[in-house]
């Protein structure tokens, strides 16, 4: 019985994903929030399925475009805050502003 269960689990983990499953998990995959095993199976499906591959490509382009909108943090602000953090750590800044 135990070996049957183990066999079922192995088969399930190795079996190809359906388009429906890919649709459910695609966003997690693109956000790197999917475990390695399912990522591999999903990736294999995208290689073989043109429709899902195009869907993934669209969302990848959306993510890339959004990431490009990332505003540069103001370098002066960043430098001042790093300096402030260092002074705080050294106890050189009052904790009650």
């Amino acid at each position: 019985m135990k070996s049957l269960f183990a066999r079922f689990r192995r088969t399930s983990a190795d079996s190809p994903m359906s388009c429906h499953q890919v649709g459910e998990l695609l966003q997690h995959y693109l956000d790197c929030e999917l475990d390695a095993s399912r990522s591999l199976r999903l990736s294999a499906h995208l290689e073989d399925c043109r429709r899902c591959g195009l869907e993934a490509e669209t969302y990848e382009r959306i993510k890339l475009s959004l990431a490009q909108q990332r505003p540069e943090v103001a370098p002066d602000s960043l430098a001042r805050l790093r300096e402030f953090g260092t002074r705080l750590a050294r106890g050189e800044e009052p904790l009650d502003p």
Partner: peptide, 26 residues
Amino acid sequence: IEVLLRVARSLTRNDADAEDLVQDTL
């Protein structure tokens, strides 16, 4: 600090407010 400043910028939509917010956070 850089992540905090970036997120603060998203929350406040203003560089000066973002810097103040991160300073208070620290």
